[in-house]
Design a protein around this nucleic acid. Structure first.
Lengths: 169, 169
DNA sequence: CTTGAAAAAGCGTTAGC
DNA sequence: GCTAACGCTTTTTCAAG
């Protein structure tokens, strides 16, 4: 796990983050200096290797009439963290679950809803699966900022790691 | 702000969340019962209305050799929340910024890095813009779970709101 | 706002280097 | 592993209801 990426991979990831739906393989190929076929092959490999896990639209929930955004901090038994995390993800309205490595407050959950009824329903659902809510805060806005440093993060660093072009692929 | 969506819009959002890159307008059209052209027009409108803000790949940072994931809680002056939020987003390694509506701990920041050097650099950068770090926790995993309830969230609710087919478009 | 048709562009596959 | 070329699918554009 944790395979090295070369510059082509990094460039692909970088450009996909800009617009994963409308960026074509040809456009990426032109900017990277390889063929479009290669870009398609690389993307396939990145997907099967699990580095790219999917493509999702970024949605402005407020504009979509889901103005209530709440962030919960939850405590669950550390040994069953993954299990609880999965259950939380199944609750309607949950859009983001982060599992913490340490500490009591080991799951952070972001949810959206249209009304306070939605929020109380979610609160109840969290309690129902046996998790303890430590705190809840209203969220104003989320900025998902896809990692913008695969590409031009500093050539020195990249060459220093020696994974520029000749990888172990 | 907060325009009503009809079932066609909701279905489009729902299906795009499944796979925003490889789901074609035709596939959506078949499932929704309109033409592919209509689906494309709707997507364009959703984008220009700001409901869809972009398309991003979901990346497994651990598999991409960025194993260090840290979640910061930061305090900034509430009146300049947006300003600070933007500055934080400019820091290399920041992948997610959430602005909180209330409380002292009003910005939550998720970052990724390859080494502790990255993390200290980010910590310094946060301090440099004048924000105070309240806490930092190691993250085990993030599950971005795009809102999965646009489609079949319960027909009763949808008809009760009366925005099924004839909107104010 | 929606539809359908023609032209242009992109994709997956296969074969060759 | 990268590239080129094939047939097929998708998108784009535009006229029309």
């Amino acid at each position: 796990m944790g395979r090295d990426l070369d510059d082509v991979d990094r460039s692909i990831l970088y450009l996909l983050q800009t617009d994963a739906r409308n960026t074509t393989a040809q456009e990426i190929a032109d900017q990277v200096g390889v063929s479009a076929s290669t870009v398609r092959n690389r993307i396939d490999t990145l997907e099967t290797d699990g580095i790219i896990q999917g493509y999702h639209p970024e949605i402005d929930y407020e504009a979509a009439n889901l103005p209530l955004q709440v962030s919960f901090v939850v405590t669950v038994p550390p040994t069953e963290l993954t299990d609880y995390s999965e259950q939380v993800r199944g609750i309607q309205g949950v859009i983001d679950v982060r599992e913490m490595l340490t500490g009591r407050r080991n799951i952070h959950v972001d949810v959206v809803g249209t009304s306070t009824r939605d929020i109380t329903r979610i609160t109840d659902a969290i309690h129902d699966i046996g998790a303890e809510i430590e705190s809840s805060e209203m969220m104003r806005r989320r900025h998902v900022q896809p990692f913008n440093h695969f590409f031009l993060q500093g050539t020195d660093d990249m060459s220093a790691r020696g994974d520029d072009s000749e990888g172990e692929r």
